[in-house]
């Protein structure tokens, strides 16, 4: 699945499933993509457009699901979460209705579009909703797998897709049920990352290895975290670093701190993400440039970790 976007991998997989399972319905808030157009064209009775109306997308999806349908609601990440948050809270989480929200554009994916299109708080606000699970997708293999897993879910899901076509890490057939995967072993330090930042974590681990720092990398793609699996997976890491393209307040790193604290595991932890005061980014020049501005590039993170561990 190299050279295919997470969006296309997800929608192509969903297309194949929906051709067989005619109970699947895709609700779209005026989104366009070739893979989506295929569903609209070939499976028109299973495609519902609501216009640019995300609140309606959620309540409609709720009603369709109560009426027996397996529903996916699809839009740009900040719009399918923040715009219609109360509908998600009361109708999906509150009644535990199994609808899958699919948000394209995790983090700074829409790097050219400014803060209206950045999804830098969605993980924070979605992960706190009871019943709902958040999946931040790492590569296209995982994207396709979650299209399939979501069809079987008995709870609401939010799938965060990155817009960037990222290298493939996983293999078809991998089991994603635990919500996390150890990608690299290392005792001295464990980098825990999610989504786009998993790829950065692997680069940073390579750099740190050159400085003889023994670094593990853990990809946590499902929140809430399975505490038991997480604690077993980090093993006896002496220090933990978290990486995210999110505001640090209440975000991914915070969720890691919560798990450690709740389980009396007091490990020194350093979080990398977006400073609360400057998280709304009005800078451009590509995603890598934006990440550089926030100190989320490989060199900045490597240097900061070296300063911390040495």
């Amino acid at each position: 699945m190299n050279n295919i976007s997470q969006r296309d991998a997800f929608l192509n997989k969903l297309y194949g499933i929906a051709k067989v399972d005619r109970n699947i319905v895709l609700v779209s808030a005026d989104m366009g993509a070739p893979a989506l157009d295929k569903i609209r064209r070939d499976l028109s009775s299973q495609y519902v457009g609501v216009g640019i109306a995300e609140q309606q997308a959620i309540v409609l999806a709720s009603g369709l699901a109560l009426g027996g349908k397996k529903v996916f609601a699809y839009a740009i990440a900040p719009f399918i979460t923040l715009r219609c948050y109360e509908q998600i809270r009361i109708d999906l989480a509150g009644m535990n209705i199994p609808v899958t929200l699919v948000g394209v554009g995790a983090g700074f994916s829409y790097e050219d579009s400014g803060p209206t299109h950045h999804a830098v708080e969605d993980l924070s606000i979605m992960r706190i909703l009871p019943n709902l699970r958040v999946h931040t997708i790492t590569d296209s293999v995982m994207a396709a797998a979650f299209a399939e897993l979501s069809c079987k879910a008995h709870y609401p899901n939010y799938v965060r897709l990155d817009r960037e076509t990222l290298p493939t890490i996983y293999s078809e057939g991998d089991d994603f049920s635990s919500g996390m995967a150890r990608l690299r072993d290392g005792k001295e330090l464990c980098i825990v990352a999610t989504g786009n930042m998993v790829h950065r974590a692997l680069d940073v681990a390579d750099e740190l290895a050159k400085h003889s720092v023994d670094v593990g990398v853990l990809d946590v793609y499902t929140l809430p975290i399975n505490d038991t699996v997480f604690l077993n997976t980090i093993d006896n890491a002496q220090k933990i670093v978290t990486l995210e393209e999110q505001t640090l307040r209440g975000g991914f790193g915070s969720s890691i701190i919560e798990v450690l604290s709740d389980n009396n595991r007091f490990v020194p932890i350093k979080r990398f993400g977006l400073d609360f005061k400057t998280a709304y980014c009005y800078k451009y020049g590509g995603r890598k440039n934006i990440q550089l501005l926030y100190g989320l590039d490989t060199q900045s993170i490597t240097n900061a970790i070296l300063d911390w561990v040495k």
């Binding site: 959620i58 309540v59 409609l60 009603g63 369709l64 009426g67 027996g68």
Partner: peptide, 11 residues
């Protein structure tokens, strides 16, 4: 009211 539209469409 919006949930009702979903129920109606599902029916």
């Amino acid at each position: 009211f919006g949930i009702a539209t979903g129920l109606a469409l599902a029916a």
